[in-house]
Nucleic acid binder design. Structure first.
Lengths: 261, 261
DNA sequence: TGGCGTTTTAAACGTATGTTTGAATTGTCA
DNA sequence: TGACAATTCAAACATACGTTTAAAACGCCA
C-alpha cells in the first residue's frame, strides 16, 4: 500500500519534472520533494536515477506498445491481403497513444517531450533500453507503413518516416507553449486532439508526395522483409541470439526502414 | 592573437560538446579541457556559462540571419508583386543555412542539434536571447511563407509551419546517426545535402495539402500584417519600446503566424 | 629595457548533486 | 501481543559543478 503510493508518486513527479526541465536538470531532491517522499526512497525503490528514468518511460510505453500491437492485429484482419492505408495507420498510432494516456489528457505531450529528450540529451542507456523493450512492436508498425507507401524507394521512405517522426515529436512535445501561442496570435483555443487532426493530413500529404525516382514501381514491389536482422545492432546489449549473426551474414543490406530507437 | 585563439577554441569546443551532450551535461571543465585552455578563461572571456551558450548561437546565427535577409531582399526584387513560391523559399533558407556553415559541412547539423536543445532543455534565457536578436529576420521569412500558402487558414499555417520546423530540426540534428542507419540498412551513403533534397519536397507537399476548411480563399486574402506587435511578448526582456504597448493595445489578435523563438 | 595592462594559471571556495548508511518506523503474520 | 521483514527517515558521504581569487606569465609600447 505505502510502497505502491511512494513508487507511484515518484513516477508521477519524475515524469512531470523531467518533461519540464530535462533529465540532468532535475535533481532527485526536486523529485522527492514534489512527490512528498524521502530522498533515499528513489535509490531504495529504483536503485539509481537511470533506472528511475527508464521506469518513467516503461510506465507509458508498456501499455502503449501492447495496445498498438492489438490494434495492428485487428486492422490486419480487416485487410485480407490488401495493403494498409497510410492515413488509417497514422490514425491508429495517434488513437493508441491518446488512449494510452486517457487518464490525464496532457499526459501525451508530456511523454512526447520525454521522447524528444531521449533523443536530444545524451541518455544512450535510454535508447538502448527502449529498443530492447519495444523494438518489435515498432518494427511491426514500420512494416505496415512500408506497404502503405509502395511508390517510395526504401531510401525515400526511410527519410520521410523520420520527417514524420520529427514533426510529430516536436509539435506534440511543445503543444503547451504552441497552443498558448496559437491562442494569443489567432484567438482560438486548441488542444492535443486539434493538433493531431492537423498533423495527420500534413504527414500523409508529405509521405504521398511523388517519388523523385523515375520508375519507382518496378524496383520496389517487395518491401515485405522487415524484421529479419533486427537484433544485429543491439546485439551487444540484448546478448541473446548473438550467435546467429553468421547465418544471414551474407545479406549485406536488408533494404528496410527501421525505427530509430 | 592569443585572445582570439582562446575565445575561438572555447566556442569550437563548446559547440561540439553542447551538441553532443546538451548544455547541463557539459561542464566547463569538459569544454576547457577539449579546448586546451584554462578553466577560468570561460568566466574571464564570457562572464558565465550562460553567456558562453548564447555566444555559441550568435556565432552561427549572426552570419545566417544577415545572409537570409540579403537573400530574401534579392528574391523579393525578382517577384515584382507576384507572391513567393514555397519551394523556392524553402530552398533559400536551406541554401543560406548551408552556406553559413560552409567552412565545415557538419556544422549545420551540429547547429540544428543545438537549436533543438534550445527548445527541449529549459534554457529560457536562450529563447529570449534568440528572439530579441534575430526575431526580425525570421518574421520576415514567416511573412513570405504566409504569402506563398494562401490556401491555408492562419491556424492551419501556424501548425503546419511548426510541423516543418520539427521535421527539419529532428532530421538534420540527428543526421549523423540517421545517415549511419541509412548506410547500414540501405547500403547507400548520404549526407546533409541529400537529406535536404529529400526534405524540401516532403515539406512542400505537406504544406500544400488541401485546407480542411471549405472556402478558405475568401476569408484569407490578407495575410500581410506580420511584424506589428512583435515586441509584446518579449517586452519584459528587451525593455525598450515597452511603453508603446498601449498604442496597439486595442488590437486583440493580430492573426499572424509567428516564429516560435 | 622597463613598466603596465592583458591574459593565463593553479588553487580554493561554496554549493549542489547522487548515493550510502544505520537507526527509527511501519505493516504483517504467528 | 511480539517478532520479523519491509519501508521510511535524517544525516552524512564523496564527488562534481560554476565561480572567484591572487599571483604568474605574457605582449606591447615608451
Amino acid at each position: 500500500m505505502a510502497q505502491k503510493d511512494t513508487v507511484n508518486c515518484l513516477l508521477e513527479a519524475a515524469e512531470e519534472l523531467f518533461s519540464e526541465r530535462g533529465f540532468a536538470e532535475t535533481s532527485l531532491r526536486n523529485i522527492t520533494t514534489r512527490a512528498g517522499v524521502n530522498l533515499a526512497s528513489v535509490n531504495y525503490h529504483f536503485g539509481s536515477k537511470k533506472s528511475l528514468i527508464q521506469a518513467v518511460f516503461a510506465r507509458f510505453l508498456a501499455p502503449f506498445s501492447q495496445e498498438l500491437d492489438r490494434s495492428l492485429s485487428e486492422y490486419e484482419k480487416t485487410l485480407k491481403g490488401k495493403r494498409a492505408e497510410l492515413t488509417i495507420l497514422l490514425t491508429i498510432a495517434a488513437d493508441t497513444a491518446f488512449r494510452s494516456s486517457s487518464d490525464r489528457p496532457q499526459r501525451l505531450n508530456i511523454f512526447m517531450r520525454l521522447l524528444g529528450l531521449a533523443y536530444t540529451q545524451g541518455q544512450g542507456h535510454l535508447r538502448r533500453f527502449l529498443r530492447a523493450e519495444y523494438g518489435d512492436v515498432f518494427d511491426r508498425f514500420s512494416l505496415q507503413l512500408s506497404q502503405a507507401t509502395p511508390h517510395l524507394t526504401n531510401e525515400e521512405r526511410f527519410w520521410r518516416f523520420h520527417f514524420m517522426l520529427g514533426a510529430t515529436m516536436f509539435s506534440l512535445s511543445g503543444v503547451d507553449s504552441l497552443t498558448a501561442m496559437a491562442t494569443h496570435d489567432l484567438g482560438k483555443r486548441s488542444d492535443v486532439t486539434d493538433v493531431i487532426g492537423q498533423l495527420i493530413p500534413f504527414l500523409a500529404s508529405g509521405m504521398q508526395a511523388p517519388s523523385s525516382v523515375a520508375s519507382s514501381v518496378t524496383s520496389n514491389d517487395k518491401t515485405a522483409s522487415v524484421s529479419d536482422d533486427l537484433s544485429q545492432k543491439s546485439s551487444n546489449l540484448t546478448s541473446d541470439a548473438a550467435s546467429e549473426k553468421s547465418v544471414n551474414g551474407s545479406v549485406k543490406a536488408s533494404n528496410r526502414a527501421r525505427l530509430p530507437i
